[in-house]
Simulated assay, not measured.
Amino acid sequence: MTVLVLPRSDWQARATAHRARVDDLVGPYLERRASGSTHPVIDFLFTYYGHKPAQLRRWHPGFGVALAGAKEYDGARGYRRVSAPLAGDRTAADVEGSDAVFAADPAYLERRRDTIEFVANLLRATASRPAQLSCFGLHEWAMVYRTDDVRHQQVPLRLGRDGTDAVVESMSLRCTHFDAFRFFTPEAVGRNALQLTRSDQVAREQPGCLHANMDLYKWGFKLVPLISSELLLAFFELACAARELDMRASPYDLADYGYDPVRIETPAGRAEYVRTQSALAERSAELRTTLLDACDALLTHGRPPADAG
């Protein structure tokens, strides 16, 4: 295997810049967590997705790039010491810190091949469909429909219990994302246009869905360290923007947290939701293509040419 090697000074500069960007995004979250307080919008990006801030802060160059003088990567999941030829006909002995040249491990890639194939199939199927922009974020409303078991107990419902239920009953539920649908209350499940299951996820997801686009972050961190941290952080920034719209259009009153509502119970609010959802879908489409290209490139590694005997 031939890899590109980065001198320690080069990759450390990139790693430092990456950590600074992450800290700008998650610093307030860490400060709140240290004080024992919670946030109904931002905490979700760590509690639901499960990729911790420390993991997000750690920089990875992606598959096919070696790091010279990188003893701190010794023992890191998915890495190996490089002894194979490097790009430019150099060997590990030719570069700075030759006793500590590390890169993403091809053996780790092979262990993750099934996951990469699933992600690629899901992304390709999602991108093949037209965007549906008529759900209006009602999945959050369906999660509290006709129940007193409200997910964000510290935040009041903007329209109250009866008003919230009335909004759900006045519009059609058109959720296409199983991981949102599975949190619907029993009374809301039957109101959805589709009865979704995990097994039909690939057949149902579409590129207008806020949660499908937010999930690019989930699929990205499942592939770490085989993709670059710069790409993963782009997915995280997209997830932050999508989560904000998700909760501004939700039934919760988030004024105390500085969020103006998108009043999807009104024609003007629904139009605002669609405009923002559409912009996020366009942004997501480019990132989805980038991640799909990365998956396809990873899947070609180690395979014989198509015309091999």
Rank of each mutant, 00 (worst) to 15 (best):
S172L: 07
D307F: 08
R198I: 15
T289V: 04
A104L: 09
W141G: 03
A281T: 01
A142Q: 04
P7L: 10
K222C: 14
G269D: 00
A142M: 06
V274T: 04
P28E: 05
R124G: 14
V41A: 02
P207D: 01
R58V: 13
S98P: 03
G190C: 00
R270D: 03
F63R: 00
A120C: 11
Q206P: 09
S37M: 02
P267H: 12
V155E: 12
V150S: 05
Y145D: 01
L233R: 09
E286W: 04
V22M: 02
D105A: 02
R124P: 08
G160I: 05
L292F: 04
L216N: 02
E282A: 05
L196E: 00
R303E: 14
A294F: 08
R158V: 12
A127E: 01
Y145R: 02
D99L: 04
L254C: 04
L298A: 09
W219L: 10
T147L: 06
V101L: 03
A203P: 14
F118A: 06
R198F: 12
A285H: 15
R112W: 13
T176F: 10
Q132S: 13
L157H: 05
T266F: 06
A285G: 13
R33C: 05
L280D: 05
D253F: 11
F221L: 11
H39V: 01
P28S: 07
R113N: 11
A285E: 09
R19N: 04
A268D: 07
L30P: 12
H139Q: 10
A104I: 08
T115L: 15
I264P: 09
A103D: 03
P304V: 11
L123C: 01
V167H: 14
G190E: 01
F181I: 04
C175T: 09
F184Q: 01
T38D: 14
L194Y: 14
G50Y: 09
C175I: 07
Y217R: 07
H152Q: 06
Y259Q: 07
A239F: 10
P85Y: 11
L238K: 12
L138Q: 08
Y108P: 05
H211L: 03
A268C: 10
L25Q: 05
Y73E: 08
W219Q: 09
T300K: 15
G69M: 15
S172A: 13
D43M: 00
A84P: 01
L216Q: 08
G78Q: 14
L45M: 05
L25Y: 04
P304T: 11
V41Y: 04
A249S: 10
T300P: 00
L216A: 00
R151W: 12
E244H: 09
Q55C: 03
D99M: 12
S134V: 01
G269N: 03
H152G: 01
L30C: 13
S229Q: 07
L194P: 14
R81D: 10
T115H: 12
Q12G: 03
A68E: 15
L280E: 10
D24W: 00
A188I: 00
